[in-house]
Structures are given as C-alpha cells and as structure tokens.
Design a protein around this nucleic acid. Structure first.
Lengths: 380, 380
DNA sequence: CGGAATTTCGTAAACGTTTACGAGATCAGG
DNA sequence: CCTGATCTCGTAAACGTTTACGAAATTCCG
C-alpha cells in the first residue's frame, strides 16, 4: 500500500494525493476530503523512509540513555517521567520521540555517531554527561540540534539543562551547619559522571564559606545503587572519627544508607543526620524517619527540553541562528526527620536526642521557578 | 556527505562503494580497504532513509512502552534491564533497538498503527498487554514480526512471553497455607492490565486446590506504586476480619504496604505475613524484615526476546514460516522473614510469635529453567 | 596462444515520497 | 467574446541507497 496504489484507487495523480495529505493549498476541498477518507479507510500513511529521503528530515527527535550509567545514575521512573514531558511538547509539532538505548557493550561515542551519520533524527538529547564527553564535541561539530541533559566540561557553547546541584549543596550544608554539624560526609557516584564532581565541589565551597573544610576521606564515592548506599554506610560507620551528618546526591544511595544504618542500630536523624535526594516522586515515602530530601518536577523539565528542542529545529530549518539555552533546574527542599541537631557528644556514640526537634516541615527552593513553564504538576 | 561524494573522492563508481561497504564478494580486497578507510576518515555512513527505502527494511526493532501503564506497571529499571538483554542479541545481527514511548496523551492503538504504517521497524515488541489488546489483533493482521511481552486474551496465535504468575501464585499460596494461613489477601494492579487478572485467578485456583475460597473483598486492586501499596495496607488494616497473610504481585506494592504496616505498628512477618515481588534486583535489600519475594533474571528474558525476534525477522525475510513461541518465564522464590507461621489468635490482634521460625532460607523455582539461554547473570 | 572461466567494476533502474513547473479549466471583468 | 487571473491538477525530477545486468579485465588451462 503506497501512494501510487492510493492514487490509482482514487483515479487521481500521486502529486495530488501527496498535496492533499500534506495540507497544501492547491487542492480542492472536495478531493482533499476524498483522499483523507480513502487513506484512513485503506490504512495508508506515507512511508517514512521515502518521505524523509525526499524531505531531508525525519521528524524524529532522539533521546539517548546509556545502559551502564543508567541503572547507575538514577533509578526507576526518572527518565520515563522526563520522556512524558518531552513527548507532550513534541507531539504538538508533529515530531516523534524515539529513545536510543546504548547498551552495556556499546560505546556511547560511536553510538551517537551512528545515529547522526545515518541521519536518524532531526535533533538529539544526550543524557548522563561525563566530565569530558566526546559526544558533545562531536555534536557541536556536526551542527545537529542537540541538548545535553547534564553539564560537561567538554565542548564550546551549546544548549544544556542540569539540576541545581550547587543550590542543593548550599541548602544541604546550610541546614546541617545550622543544626550544629561540622563533620559532614558527602556520598557521590563513582565514575566519571559529571554531576558527582559538581556536587562535591559545591559542597566543598559551601563548607568553606562557613569556615569548614571537606576532608578528602569524607568524600565517599560509590556505585549508584542501593548496594552502593549500603557500602557508603559501612564506610561511614567504620571511620575512627565518625561524621555527624551525611549528604547523598541520589535516591538509591540514601535508601541503601538507611538500610545499613538500621542494620547497625544507628538511627537516622537521632544518631546521624542524612540529607538525600528524591528525584522520583513516590520514593521517599516509606523511609522511616522521613528523609530530608530534595525533590523536583521532572515532567516540567521534560517540557523544557521539548520546547527548546523545537526552537532549535525550527531555527535550523529556517536557516536562522538562535542563542543556545543553559538552564539550571531548581529543586525543592523537603525537611523530614532525618536531620536533627547534632548530639553534644559528637563522636558518633549513639546518644538519644529529642526525636521531634528540627522536624518542623519546611520547604524552600534552590532557584527561581522556571519562568518558561507552568506550575508544578504533582504526580501520583 | 553521501555515497556520490565518497565515490568521486575515490574515483570509483557508487556501485562499487556500496558493494564494498556491504561486504559483497564482487569487489577486490584492495578497493574494499580503500573504501572502508575513506569512509571512516570522512565520517561517512549510509543514509538510513535511502537504504531502507531501497531495501524495504529498516534494520530496526521497536520496543513499545506505555506511559500511563509504565510507572504504573513496573519501574524503569525493569525495562532498562530488559532492553539490555534485547540489545545484546540484536547487535550481533546488525539490528538496532529503538524504544517507542507512548506518552500519556496518546492511545497505544493508534501509536502502534503509526509505527507500522509508516514502516519504521522490521519487528516490534509490545509490552504491558491488557486483557483485550487491539494492538495484538492489529499486528497479527499486518503480518509484522512481533512479540507480546505479556499475555492477552486478544488475537489468535502469536508469539509472547510472560512471567510465570501461575507458578508464583501456587508457590505463594503453598508457602502461606503450610504456615497455617487460611485468610489470605491478594494485592493486584487496578486497571485492565492482563497479569493482574491472571495472578488473581491463579491465586484463587491455588486456594481452591487446598479447599479454600478467595473472598472477593480480599482482592485488593490498587494503583501500582508505593502510594498504592500504602493504600493496600490501609484497606487491609481496616477490615473487620483482618487477613493473616497477603501476597502482592509487584515491587512497589510491597514497599508501600510495608510502610503502612510499620506506621500502624503492625510487624510484617510477626503480625501479618507478606509475600512480594522483587523484579528489579536491588530493591528488596532494605526492607526489614527481609521480604519473602520472587525474583527473576530480566537480562535473560530480554535475550530471549531478542533471539526470537531475530528468528521471526529472518524467517519472514526468507519467506519461510516458523512456529510462534510462547514462553512462561520462571521466577525464583526467596524466603525471607516476612512470612511466619500464623499466630494462634488469628484475628489480627498483634501477638508475639517467634521471630525466627520459618525464616530458614529456601529457594525454589517456578518453572524449569530456560533451556534456550545460558545461566543467570547476577546484576548489582 | 586462444578460448573459457573468473574477477572486478560501471550503468541504470528502482524504492516511495515531495515539490517545482506548467498546463488545462474555470472565472471575472471589460 | 476576449484577456488575464485564479484554481486545480498532472508530470517529472530529485532525495541516497542497493542491486541486477552486463562489460571489461584478468586468470586459467589445455
């Protein structure tokens, strides 16, 4: 079933069929109706290969996620929620979102290269950026509309969006130091994941602003998983001089950490203060005591990606040049009961402290709310 | 940069270039080397639109996931792990895996229709099947190689793979009834997700085999999320005649359930026995007491999908017809401490029972191990 | 050395679209 | 009725490949 069949069936030329389907002006209203009706009835829609060959564009936007860094980087519904936001915007522009999944065996660089060279997409979103990320250099050079989800030290000017790790660090350290904590550990992903370093350095700077140092042995790098969080707990508890507070930059780290602490009879909040992440909405629910954590609106973030991607693609189509966008995405601090005033005997000896103090719920935001997008969309 | 440019640059014809790149025999070893070298140096790879237009096949396999059922049905780590397996097999056959994400606003039926009509893929995997699933009828009719991930009542003969919910039900009920439980609740997804019904009916049958009935009010259908699991707990505890055991067919359900139970001061295992799922490897780690649960090898499952998809595609290419495959995937029971002998006063009054009894670790399997695939691949 | 067999390559058609161009039909206005 | 404008449509080229076909060059073998 192709355009010739349809044309023959209607006794008109393929040119007219094409024009009718593509909504061009020079076709009578009557024939257009006939064509549309017949197309629907016979289940015809234009072959994508033929169309994009002729048009020179595919109408597809790629979103690349990486396997070995994926279960790593964030768990569960994180990306799917972002997809939702991207999709909702692209659909309005007749663009399709396709997800390219770079498997364990494949190199992200050659994977992105294949996608581009073979002309699979009109635009690409690359996630899970590393500090040096050759994908970015390559994409700049190729002049393909793209957005990096995550910052990187690579490449020149380009569009990116990233979470406000500096804001998170500042607020975390602010909260803990106000509660009297001075020896604070930082749990961060192992491997060359850019935000791990961003976050660590931001914590260091926040501490320095308060006259404190971040000892190197307090930077704990572990695989991003519940198991990794568990090991963070082990390393924490094994320290001669145990920290009184710890900040963890990812969901599963905090969960695994909780697990180890409880196994060891160390109560989060009472014995050691924990600040965590809650990038997917329903996750922190079950942790007891409730985790002090940062949450964010991932659907809106996805919408931002989609909106800017459309801008980039349309600009290129029109031959215009528009400024790249760089966006730092705000997170919201939700104070739970896992952060408490430091115990007087701050050497880590378990000592009971009022379990209620400091648990009054507070909320603040790491950055000004995005002006581009509508208000938050609470999920589930 | 297209094949003409490359040919001109090498002073040979485009036919030769194409043959060289596609590994055909009728090209001298020397020119092949020259072509490959030049292609790599100039960053040329064949345009996919042109290639698939001519070939009539795209070399892509689609994997469709659905938004509103996705966060619902299973988390992201679930699918990503499956992708890994599929990908690893497809890559060997020079096939690409692309993930189509059907967003919240889109209908899965029209989405799959578009994918097929526009000729985007050589084969398609559809997941999250419903009881009546028009996608399946449509795909059968279209004669496109496809596999359903999940059973359905729709459609005639076709290939599918599904988890062994019957085995899970049988083993769960067996375990609980051996421990003396007679009043057992079933927590299952709300909505028309096929496996919810399969599982419920399998539980009902397993109970019947032991002379027990499954009361309708003991079938608790809730959204598949931690919040849903929490509501399961609420409904459970609100019952006049509280069940002594509960089986939950999904990860997050068990997690939310635990949360509610603990909030209410009801100890899993001691006060109520819980059997859960652990479809993603690292999840159950942190639950205390350790959850009695079913686990499975998702990468291997993905490999099975990939392998069979390759068979289907190659058969179609060769014009042959091969039998469809139907596969029930085994799960492994891991007995934790959340299942205990029923308390003598089985009316739900919290009563202390030996916390160690019944906690000896056992492992068994719901079905014979797949003969097709190699042994398990433990994942962090 | 001559013919056949083999190796290597160029030519051109085909895949299914979109669109520039131009032609016929219709219409308005004088 | 004539001219020009407008509306509607058909024709054909082009997008970048792959591949059937045949031709030229080389090798083989008696």
């Amino acid at each position: 079933m192709n355009i010739h069949d349809l044309a023959k069936h209607l006794n008109i030329s393929i040119g007219t069929v094409s024009r009718a389907l593509n909504g061009r002006a020079d076709v009578s209203e009557e024939t257009r109706k006939r064509v549309l009706e017949a197309a629907k009835r016979l289940g015809y829609s234009p072959n994508q290969s033929g169309r994009s060959l002729r048009r020179g564009s595919t109408g597809m936007v790629g979103f690349m996620v990486i396997a070995n860094r994926s279960r790593a980087v964030r768990g569960e519904a994180f990306f799917m929620t972002v997809f939702d936001g991207v999709q909702s915007v692209l659909a309005k522009e007749n663009l399709d979102l396709v997800i390219y999944y770079c498997g364990d065996g494949q190199s992200p660089e050659t994977y992105v290269q294949r996608i581009v060279e073979r002309g699979l997409v009109d635009g690409l979103i690359v996630s899970q950026t590393t500090r040096v990320d050759h994908r970015i250099d390559y994409l700049i050079q190729q002049n393909l509309p793209f957005i990096a989800f995550g910052r990187s030290q690579s490449g020149g000017d380009h569009s990116w969006i990233d979470l406000d790790f500096e804001g998170v660090a500042e607020q975390s350290i602010d909260l803990l130091t106000r509660l009297g904590h001075r020896r604070i550990a930082v749990a961060t992903p192992a491997g060359d994941v850019n935000y791990g370093f961003v976050y660590t350095e931001a914590c260091r700077a926040a501490l320095k602003r308060r006259g404190l140092e971040l000892d190197d042995d307090l930077v704990i790098r572990e695989a991003i998983s519940e198991a990794g969080g568990y090991r963070v707990g082990e390393r924490l508890l094994a320290m001669k001089q145990r920290p009184t507070g710890v900040v963890a930059v990812e969901n599963s780290l905090a969960i695994g950490l909780y697990s180890k602490l409880k196994d060891a009879g160390v109560a989060p909040g009472r014995d050691i203060s924990v600040v965590g992440f809650d990038e997917t909405p329903t996750f922190g629910l079950f942790l007891q005591p409730p985790l002090t954590r940062f949450r964010l609106e991932l659907v809106d973030l996805g919408r931002w990606l989609g909106t800017h991607m459309v801008e980039l693609i349309e600009a290129k189509r029109a031959g215009k040049t528009i400024p790249f966008a760089q966006k730092v995405w705000p997170l919201e601090l939700v104070v739970g009961a896992s952060t408490m005033p430091v115990s007087p005997a701050a050497d880590g000896a378990p000592e009971v402290v009022s379990a209620e103090a400091g648990a009054k719920r507070r909320v603040s935001r790491t950055a000004r709310t995005s002006s581009l997008l509508a208000g938050s969309t609470a999920r589930d």
